[in-house]
């Protein structure tokens, strides 16, 4: 080994994800791991607390934050941090766009998820949709449908925006929302699934809500 060379960490430590059943944030982590081909040992906690579909993380009764990712002695919580970590650990090119404009668009859609799409999805799952929520959900889906008629992925290239947005589509689908009017969204989900090296059993994500263990990639 040369004077300045470093032995590359082969990553013998597995990445372990603690998630919450039915939580959109956990879903985003699983999708990113699938897309980036990162093996992830996942434990889905069962909790008495209501599932938060809006924020990046939430507390369990134990005061643990979920989702939480651990690798060796490094541990971090929240979707923002976990997605960043998984992206770097993944194979091939990072999902972060190099062009400033695409980067801005990627983050715009992530913000739309937190501020607009998330709250409306939460209302749908909780069966507490107002007229405004119904209109918001429809507006976001129409906008995505239009974008995805022209683009392969949300900002053109595959980016962080895709797992963020796709997680809500999965949650809506599992919750019984009728997506038949949005064929381009369906095709885009298929394209995303084609990028994953292992299958992500979304129905299992719902059905497995009591036992709580799954593996991606």
């Amino acid at each position: 080994m040369g004077l300045f060379s470093r032995k590359k960490d082969k990553g013998s430590n597995n990445l372990e994800l603690l998630g919450l059943k039915g939580q959109v944030s956990t879903m985003k982590c699983l999708l990113m791991a699938g897309i980036r081909d990162v093996p992830l040992k996942t434990t889905l906690a069962s909790s008495e607390v209501a599932v938060d579909q809006v924020n990046s993380y939430q507390y369990l009764e134990t005061s643990d934050k979920v989702p939480n990712l651990t690798q060796g002695d490094f541990s971090v919580s929240g979707v923002r941090a976990i997605l960043t970590y998984i992206d770097v650990k993944g194979k091939g090119v990072s999902l972060i766009p190099k062009k400033a404009r695409n980067l801005g668009l990627q983050n715009y859609w992530i913000d739309v998820c937190y501020q607009t799409f998330g709250p409306a999805t939460q209302a749908f799952i909780n069966n507490s949709m107002t007229e405004k929520d119904t209109a918001t959900l429809s507006d976001v889906l129409k906008s995505l449908e239009k974008i995805l008629a022209e683009n392969e992925f949300i900002v053109g290239q595959l980016s962080f925006a895709d797992p963020h947005v796709a997680a809500y589509i999965y949650v809506l689908r599992v919750g019984g929302y009728d997506l038949t009017d949005y064929p381009n969204i369906g095709k885009w989900i298929s394209r995303l699934e084609g990028k994953m090296s292992g299958s992500l059993n979304i129905e299992g994500f719902q059905a497995d809500m009591q036992s709580g263990a799954s593996q991606v990639a």
Binding site: Q106, Y108, V112, V140
Partner: peptide, 27 residues
């Protein structure tokens, strides 16, 4: 279209939301 703010414009490019604007400026 979703009323996201703050909003930013650079020539023919518009983007909104702090995370988007900050990332754009950083790049």
């Amino acid at each position: 279209e979703f009323g996201t703010y703050p909003g930013m414009k650079e020539a023919d490019y518009n983007v909104a939301g702090a995370n988007a604007i900050m990332a754009f400026i950083n790049a």
